[in-house]
Write a protein that binds this DNA or RNA. Structure first.
Lengths: 328, 328
DNA sequence: GAATAATTGTCAAGCGTTTGACAATTTGAC
DNA sequence: GTCAAATTGTCAAACGCTTGACAATTATTC
């Protein structure tokens, strides 16, 4: 690997000058700049980022801690983030926490050891103190990590309300909500709260059926099937789109027609769903907006300007045939 | 951030001793080890990996260049890789090339600048010379990058053969293959070759319809629909599962019953498909095996022991109702 | 308690870069 | 041709750690 000194020799200038060119600092003539750039190209030189960072520069590394990119929701979010981070000059270290506390702890240590500039995370298997001990800029997505850690969310309550009201507006009276989230104090729980509130406002009884975030699909299917068989249900609100898919398939197997007998609405609205299951009505999260806000917030934290307050981003209903047959 | 010197002071030993403990080198008594570890914990110390690597240690960083983790196939593969890499003590730098040559070039530079130990890639938008210029261990997945770069694949020809024969065995005679890959010399093209060979062996006419890897789903749908409407087709072999999904949906819209009127088989067999579309018959790629082989090969390259020859990993048919109604 | 082995300390160079202070040189303007 | 301004060079310290050489200190053993 060519070093800065090699470049200096080839260009016939001093190492300091090369460094000045790289960092665009000090007085420099066009002529030397050209010479140096030519030498860099000739040697296929890339400055050693380790050395640069050691001597004070930022690493331009950001850690992304998410459950797993094998889930299309996180996959899409991570893809969005990675793109924006790249555009902003950052490199992405990917960490799939797999909802494993030990792994997450190891990741935090590792990211610190690698001197990342900041972390964006969407898991929380650790205690608050552990997050606070990290003396690093952190931004959370949809999770309450610690009072001091800024959190970016979309409007979960609003989303829950829109979904519930949409089902009721379509005539549903026996509406069940399926939730697969685990914790109790998570922001996403506002969706359930909204569901419960809306149901109560309409004099209807809310029924929340938990499925467990880490439960395998086949087990979820069984729960869903028994539910469909044993309860009089005409509407289902799923806290994520994948669960909605399971509902649609189990309903089809049982000969329940959607949307005449049963209306279904999901949550998330990934591009994947839009492409491969456009029939599903869902609550559309603003992926791009969330990604940009996450990164803007993180860079703000990196520059010691933590945001005062972060308003939840608006969500919107994406209509579909599972809610309203003659939608199109 | 605490440094090695801080740890030494707290532990009451010399910096050298702390380094010896970290690197487990030289003669060390249990007593000092304990003291040092205690001090490290007390200070929440993590060795600065930049400094370690600068002074000769490996970075334990691996770059992953894939089109995008928003595609469930790559998402799952990347998740698998990340897990295994983590287990092997490596950190993952994620690079979504988005099939953009400039971005890929920038990524290669960036990875080199960050002194990664190696790269695993599954895109190739660049010329051979550009890959060879990278003086870094590279392993390719399903792509021919350069003669010198080892390539890990599953048995594409075998997969194409199994799929084609399965359709024929189920009585299909008018079979179309839908391919979404772009290049002409890619290993995955063996699937088409096998399809063509098998068709010929049975005295049938092969028809390959290209869809374009980067084409949006809605456009693919149109192609598929017109094809279904205008050609007598009783079997479709898709070069990936997502395309198969589109086929199933368009067929349903047209009132074509699967599998009685049309049989469909996909390719890839992600966990996602198994969970959310178990009805789809497909060719199952050995994800875990591929991941492990990719990493084993990369570490071999890193240790200057490039593999002699890499045999394609076997694939297998995963049956499903889209191929055989009474399968279950 | 002497001899030997085991452990720990001291010192310094080096990894590739940045950055500041200062001196030396070149350039341009008049 | 002079002078100031612009440009480039020299030198050295620093970032945090590793590693080797060597000396000094402890433990261990008989």
């Amino acid at each position: 690997m060519a070093t800065l000194n090699d470049v200096a020799k080839v260009a016939g200038v001093s190492p300091t000058t090369v460094s000045r060119v790289i960092n665009n600092y000090g007085a420099l003539s066009e002529k030397t700049k050209t010479k140096v750039f030519a030498a860099m190209r000739e040697l296929n030189y890339a400055p050693n980022n380790l050395a640069r960072s050691l001597s004070g520069k930022k690493t331009q590394l950001v850690g992304l801690i998410f459950p797993s990119v094998s889930n299309p929701f996180f996959g899409e979010l991570v893809a969005t983030l990675e793109n924006s981070l790249f555009a902003a000059g950052y490199k992405t270290i990917l960490c799939n926490s797999a909802n494993n506390a030990d792994k997450e702890r190891a990741y935090l240590r590792m990211l610190a050891a690698n001197q990342v500039d900041g972390i964006i995370t969407s898991t929380h298997n650790l205690g608050i103190t552990e997050y606070q001990k990290i003396a690093l800029p952190i931004v959370a997505f949809d999770r309450n990590l610690a009072p001091t850690i800024p959190i970016v969310i979309s409007d979960n309550y609003q989303g829950g309300r829109i979904a519930s009201e949409a089902l009721i507006a379509q005539g549903c009276r026996h509406i069940v909500m399926l939730v697969s989230s685990a914790g109790t104090s998570e922001p996403t729980n506002a969706r359930q709260q909204a569901y419960a509130d809306v149901m109560a406002q309409h004099g209807l009884t809310p029924t929340v059926t938990p499925l467990g975030f880490n439960t395998v699909a086949s087990v979820k299917r069984i729960t869903i099937r028994t539910m469909l068989q044993n309860q009089p249900i005409d509407g289902i609100f799923c806290s994520d789109d994948l669960t909605a898919l399971l509902v649609l398939e189990e309903a089809a197997k049982l000969g329940i027609d959607v949307p005449t007998q049963l209306k279904v609405i999901g949550y998330d609205g990934t591009q994947f769903m839009r492409d491969y299951h456009p029939e599903l009505a869902t609550i559309q999260q603003p992926f791009t907006g969330l990604g940009q806000l996450l990164i803007a917030t993180l860079t703000a934290c990196i520059n010691d300007q933590p945001p005062k307050h972060l308003a939840p981003l608006p969500v919107q209903l994406r209509p579909g045939e599972t809610l309203n047959a003659d939608w199109a």
